[in-house]
């Protein structure tokens, strides 16, 4: 089969830009890169489908050879909708990360970093204390998370102060 050069060039550029963005730390850029890579992969499948033909609708006078290959089209249709689902999920992740930590970056894994900095392999004696993951106050999994409980306490404290301030005054 013959290959179309224009589509190849577009696909290569989209892949390059998409991968470049996906190797970023900012999750928004990762999502954009993911979208580009998704588009590029759909393009890959349509390139491999072969030459352009007429639409795959069964009508009299149109041969099967003249139609575009319908199998890749079915695959791409599935891929497009799934890409949308995954992008929605990534958007929710970005929002959640923003709410928790006021930033949308991909965090480093704490255990791996500890191993890199040469923290010795703990013996059995040390393991006993840090065995439980959840203490009396469950801490967030993200290391840079804001402490929402502390925020609430601060808010309540200020509210009490305001009440005290208004204590002695006559209500308007």
């Amino acid at each position: 089969m013959s290959v179309s050069l224009v589509l190849l060039v577009i696909m290569a550029v989209l892949y390059a830009c998409g991968i470049y963005l996906m190797l970023e730390r900012s999750m928004t850029r990762v999502l954009l890169g993911f979208l580009l890579v998704g588009n590029a992969t759909n393009l890959l499948i349509i390139i491999v489908a072969g030459a352009a033909g007429s639409a795959p609708i069964v009508t009299d006078g149109v041969d099967a050879e003249q139609m575009t290959d319908p199998l890749p089209e079915a695959l791409i249709l599935t891929a497009i909708v799934i890409t949308f689902g995954v992008s929605a999920f990534l958007l929710a992740l970005i929002y959640r990360s923003w709410r928790l930590a006021r930033q949308d970056v991909v965090q480093d894994d704490a255990d791996d970093v500890a191993m890199r900095s040469g923290v010795a392999i703990r013996g059995e004696a040390g393991a006993a204390e840090s065995d439980t993951e959840f203490g009396t106050r469950a801490r967030a999994a993200v290391s840079s998370a804001r402490d929402l409980e502390a925020d609430d306490e601060d808010a309540a404290e200020v509210g009490r102060q305001e009440d005290d301030r208004y204590e002695g005054e006559e209500p308007p």
């Binding site: 089969m1 013959s2 290959v3 190849l8 060039v9 696909m11 290569a12 550029v13 989209l14 892949y15 390059a16 830009c17 998409g18 991968i19 470049y20 190797l23 590029a40 890959l44 390139i47 491999v48 072969g50």
Partner: peptide
């Protein structure tokens, strides 16, 4: 990495075709 990947996928598409 991006450029290498893009060029590579183009070659793969050509070979697959």
């Amino acid at each position: 990495i991006g450029i290498v990947f893009g060029v590579l996928m183009a070659v793969v598409a050509v070979v697959a075709l």
